[in-house]
Design a protein around this nucleic acid. Sequence first.
DNA 1: TTTTCACTTTAGAACTATTATAAACTAGAA
DNA 2: TTCTAGTTTATAATAGTTCTAAAGTGAAAA
Lengths: 135, 135
Amino acid sequence: MKKIDIFNKLRTSGLRPTKQRVEIAKFLFEREKTFHFTVESLNKLLEKKTTSKFALATIYNTVHAFKNAGHLSELEVKGNKTYFDTNVSNHHHFYDSETSELIDIDEKEVVIQKIPKAPNGKKIKNIEVFINLKN
Amino acid sequence: MKKIDIFNKLRTSGLRPTKQRVEIAKFLFEREKTFHFTVESLNKLLEKKTTSKFALATIYNTVHAFKNAGHLSELEVKGNKTYFDTNVSNHHHFYDSETSELIDIDEKEVVIQKIPKAPNGKKIKNIEVFINLKN
DNA sequence: TTTTCACTTTAGAACTATTATAAACTAGAA
DNA sequence: TTCTAGTTTATAATAGTTCTAAAGTGAAAA
Ligand SMILES: [Mn+2]
Ligand SMILES: [Mn+2]
Ligand SMILES: [Zn+2]
Ligand SMILES: [Zn+2]
């Protein structure tokens, strides 16, 4: 994803392409593989990989703006920190609780044969499968 | 589960059956259906349903002691609070994010036909399925 | 261009969930 | 009954996140 695309991505989301947002967007979205992170881990990586520095509040603001724009999704992971995912399609995860490492599983790699029907007047929105790993 | 059983459950877990532990254990374990809760919700319910009062730290201590003893499991739910589950067997959940309500699904109610193999030298510990609901 | 201003960033305060501390209390062995 | 390790408790400390309001800035309008 090139700079012009980052600009468009931000603009079409109603987000002004500020210096900070562009740099964080490049870091998050210009990569081949899915990236799973917490605000803390993102902050550390940005400190390491870029010369600019960002207020922690800006990282929170930006990550939430991207999430609200549909460019990031939030993950359910044990512990008190919020995890984010650059893969916003329906997909599943391997999870290694010892290393807190998450690995994407494409939706098509998991086939479910049988599930119970949704309770009362509710419908199924989506299904998430976590495969917990050990050594 | 009767009082004597609560006493045994605590004793055999190496936990002294104190007034507080017995009362919390009765509240958590003397019920037909699975109970999903946060420390905050448990605290409020204990205030309402019992005459004794408990220091918040005691509720944290007790819940963690029960978890370490294998009487409670921890759940992965979006948000910053830690959820606990009185069902410690492998099972799945319906989840309604609007009400934060969790409903148990027995392991046998979900049949998975195909999953990818675990990465590198790792093995699959268990599989958790979350069925997200909408109205 | 320059001006203007709504939007954004920022440092720090505030807030919320959780854990640590250490003094007072207590279950239960002796 | 005495004794003590284990437990409870109030409170402080910590960690993750959100709020606040002042300073800065992108970009539309003049
Ligand atoms: Mn979490
Ligand atoms: Mn959580
Ligand atoms: Zn993912
Ligand atoms: Zn459950």
